[in-house]
């Protein structure tokens, strides 16, 4: 593998930098994995920003899924009570259809979070499988599989998404599938890189010599060593999916109304920028930013704690 490939793997997801070191030091000692995990968790919990991130995610989840149970609003039928400023029984005002903005933030957040999590799970699953197979088999199969990934990466995903969203009228499920279909590329590259370096390590060779099969090598050695990278990447995937969904909605290619998400709330609010209806623009925007920041913080913190594990050894 060339340095250039190394570099761009590092850049395509920031997880790249520390991975190699992790792979080279940890895997050999399966017996100490319990204490290692403890150390990782400990370092993670000592990171204040990580706690902030987790708290934000918990708050956002409660807000979106429990909030509507406590704060009842009419999000079904429109009313004449439109674009009311905050106050008068509407803490964040009402939007252009007369919906309560606070209540809409909760309902809209549900689909934003659902999309984020679903995409991260699906894309990570596909990517890990694809990357592990490519890296483990190696040779010509690896070359072909990775050229396919290169090809897809050279077309900006937003272009593909817009095209697909124009061809197929979007539904929630379809959007999740389409966004996942363009999101599995970076986990595939990362895991392939890990698998490539891991499969030639001495302890993997030792497993071979002792008669262990491919399945044992993958399940007991390669996946546990790559799991850090996978988790970090999945966290960033959630953040990216929420952003992508927001952009698609903004461009009018998201879910058709009455469905709402933070992105579509923003795209509706944009039409009223010049009227000074700030409550149609700031709340949804801040909700997106806080959630994305939270997942990025968590991802960064997990990565850091995986690296600290090495420094403390």
């Amino acid at each position: 593998m060339s340095k250039i490939d190394d570099l761009d793997e590092g850049l395509s997801s920031e997880g790249g930098g520390g991975n190699e070191i992790i792979g080279s030091t940890s895997g050999g000692e399966a017996h100490s994995s319990g204490s290692q995990l403890k150390l990782i968790v400990q370092t993670f919990l000592e990171n204040k920003l990580a706690i902030v991130g987790i708290a934000l995610v918990v708050v956002a989840t409660l807000f979106c899924f429990v909030g509507p149970l406590l704060y009842h609003t009419n999000q079904v039928t429109t009313s004449y009570n439109i674009t009311q400023p905050p106050g008068h029984g509407h803490p964040l005002g009402t939007d252009q259809n007369g919906y309560d903005v606070l209540g809409r933030l909760m309902v809209g957040g549900q689909s934003s979070l659902e999309i984020g999590f679903s995409v991260a799970i699906i894309a990570t699953f596909i990517g890990v499988l694809y990357g592990a197979i490519a890296g483990f088999i190696g040779g010509i199969v690896d070359t072909i599989m990775m050229r396919i990934v290169d090809t897809l990466l050279s077309i900006p995903t937003l272009l593909l998404l817009i095209y697909l969203a124009a061809v197929f009228r979007p539904t929630l499920k379809l959007l999740i599938i389409v966004i996942s279909a363009v999101s599995w590329l970076s986990p595939a590259r990362l895991v392939r890189g890990e698998a490539l370096t891991l499969r030639v390590r001495d302890y993997v060779k030792a497993v071979r010599v002792m008669g262990g099969g491919s399945r044992r090598i993958i399940v007991r050695h390669i996946v546990p060593n790559a799991i850090g990278t996978i988790v970090v990447n999945a966290t960033f995937q959630i953040a990216d999916a929420i952003l992508v969904m927001a952009v698609l909605s903004y461009l009018g290619l998201g879910l058709p109304p009455p469905a709402a998400n933070w992105g579509s709330m923003l795209s509706d609010g944009v039409n009223y920028v010049y009227d000074g209806y700030w409550w149609l623009i700031y709340p949804a925007g801040l909700a997106i930013i806080l959630t994305v920041v939270a997942f990025n913080l968590i991802g960064d913190a997990i990565r850091d704690s995986l690296e600290v594990r090495l420094q403390k050894r």
Binding site: A239, L243, A246, V247, Y250, G263, L266, V270, V273, Y274, G276, W278, I281, G285, I288, I289, V292, V293, N296
Partner: peptide, 22 residues
Amino acid sequence: SFLLYSMPSFWLGIILILAFAV
């Protein structure tokens, strides 16, 4: 840079329009 990185780019554009144009 962390904040900018986590911001939908269209939202940033809108905020700038609100501030500098409106």
